[in-house]
């Protein structure tokens, strides 16, 4: 069994989770604070990948990244970057595709914190950033863990978008889910079993770990 697709999947999931963590935290906080038409539209756009067929998203990203289209052409000409059938393209597509898995749990956690604890911090002369850093983030640790793990696990199992953007290039874009599909296509069920079992075991261990950690972290403050 070739372990490269598994390692590639882990690498893709790790990088995507890291990028989304730093994008997701401020966006989720902003969404939890705002209640305007604009914020509703932003939230709807972020949630779209949750309900949109992955092939639809993959198709439009493929068009956008294509060197024949304006964005792809500009990236190619300005930075000499081609996103189609490359690992970079996979990362960007995964970041977009997994956005709601990072942002929704974080936003929900921010919204569940009593508003008065932020207000108390402000009246003590603290800025919004200080309040976020010293008061809000320490109180949403379980949600941060859940969001990171959901994003990681979701990216690990990605198929449609990855296939559309990355294709099936060994060592570059052939991640575990593509390797399973490829094995089934070539009637190698044994190999498909191996890849599937590894993915199953990995995600199961991740989910169990989160449950255990969240039980420790997630006790109610007034318990």
């Amino acid at each position: 069994m070739d372990w490269l697709p598994i390692l590639l999947s882990m690498k893709l999931a790790g990088i995507t989770t890291l990028i989304l963590f730093f994008i997701g935290l401020p966006v989720a906080w902003w969404l939890s604070e705002k209640n305007s038409v604009f914020s509703v539209i932003v939230e709807a756009v972020i949630t779209m990948p949750l309900v949109l067929p992955p092939s639809v998203l993959g198709f439009y990203l493929l068009l956008a990244f294509s060197p024949q289209q304006s964005l792809g052409k500009w990236l190619q000409e300005t930075f000499d970057i081609s996103l189609v059938f490359s690992f970079k393209g996979l990362v960007i597509a995964s970041v977009i595709y997994s956005l709601p898995f990072m942002i929704s749990p974080l936003k929900s956690a921010f919204m569940h914190l009593p508003k008065s604890i932020s207000q108390a911090s402000y009246t003590m002369g603290k800025s919004k950033f200080q309040t976020l850093w010293y008061v809000l983030l320490p109180n949403i640790k379980p949600a941060m863990l859940t969001a990171a793990v959901l994003t990681f696990a979701h990216t690990l199992g990605e198929f449609g978008v990855v296939l559309m953007i990355g294709g099936n290039i060994p060592g570059v874009t052939k991640v575990a889910s593509i390797a399973i599909y490829d094995s089934v296509e070539s009637m190698d069920y044994q190999l498909a079993h191996y890849y599937s079992l590894v993915l199953f075991a990995l995600t199961f261990i991740i989910v169990i770990t989160v449950f255990i950690l969240n039980r420790r972290l997630g006790k109610s403050p007034l318990e």
Partner: peptide, 20 residues
Amino acid sequence: FRPRERKTGMVFQDYALFPH
């Protein structure tokens, strides 16, 4: 003026303590 510029001490009805 923003709350942090006013720097009033405030005791909240629900205490608003920081759980961590």
